[in-house]
Design a protein around this nucleic acid. Structure first.
Length: 261
DNA sequence: ATGGTAGAAGGTCTA
């Protein structure tokens, strides 16, 4: 099963790019972030025509996450348990019913950016990460295969950014941010790309500003976290820079992983 | 220090 994640930075602005990518990459499951629209205006028809079921947790103007799946989606859940007061649409989870031993629980995650620091936005990010860690622990206890994919807004290590010094005081790279990310990993999750790759300076996001893309001045912030039962099935994980090079590109590019049956 | 870009808006806010 091929599972992809992509922060599209507006599904409406990005629809031609997303459809072209779905046709070419043919993921079984696509986890989208920053759809930036409500459920009613999500372009579900064009996506369903490609054979995908859609589970959407939208929001006007900001945030918004979705799961696209060629297999039926069950147990759709939006928002993190214990975080019911949160009015930002950043989490959607579902069981992908692929039949046999191919089933998997997936979540599409848009973790808060957290800048500027210090301040309310950073406090919100850290609190949100605590709620995500709680959910990740609950899911581990099910002993199901679980794939938590999305825009984590976390640069895990120096080698995951072009210029560590430039990011030293940023919410995506502060020691406290990276420590909380490791706390989730230490529950028993595997970061799919890094466990299969040793390369440095491979990125999933390049800012629109300052010619970051042509200069390859990027950061790696889009990740898959796999439970042991999913990690046992992991055979491949790749970052596809192609969509970032297209006209009207998102500032993120898709990351995908392949799980064996 | 500032502003550089993009998107949803049709104000600024978010990133």
């Amino acid at each position: 099963m091929k599972i992809a994640t992509w922060n599209v930075n507006s599904i409406k602005a990005r629809l031609p790019n997303v459809l072209e990518w779905l046709d070419a990459a043919q993921p079984d499951v696509a986890l989208l972030q920053e759809i930036k629209t409500v459920d009613e205006t999500f372009p579900a028809m064009e996506i369903e025509e490609r054979g995908y079921n859609c589970a959407i947790h939208g929001q006007k103007s900001y945030n918004g996450v979705a799961i696209l799946s060629k297999h039926p989606l069950e147990d759709v859940m939006t928002g993190l348990p214990g975080n019911e007061d949160d009015d930002q649409a950043r989490y959607i989870e579902a069981w992908v019913d692929a039949g046999g031993h191919d089933g998997v629980r997936v979540a599409s995650i848009y973790l808060p950016n957290g800048n500027p620091t210090p301040g309310d936005k950073y406090d919100y990010k850290l609190g949100w990460m605590d709620h995500l860690a709680d959910r990740a622990a609950t899911l581990l206890a099910t002993e199901e295969p679980v794939v938590l994919g999305g825009d984590y807004n976390v640069i895990p290590a120096d080698e995951d950014c072009h210029d560590p010094a430039a990011w030293a005081n940023d919410a995506l790279f502060l020691p406290q941010t990276r420590a909380k990310f490791r706390t989730i990993l230490n529950l028993g999750y595997t970061e799919a790309w890094r466990t299969l790759h040793t390369e440095k300076n491979v990125y999933s996001f390049w800012d629109y500003q300052g010619g970051a893309w042509p200069k390859d001045n990027g950061i790696r912030i889009d990740h898959f976290l796999l439970s042991p039962q999913a990690a046992d099935r992991l055979v491949k994980c790749e970052i596809d820079p192609g969509p970032r090079s297209k006209p009207k590109a998102s500032d993120h590019t898709p990351v995908w992983c392949e799980l064996a049956s």
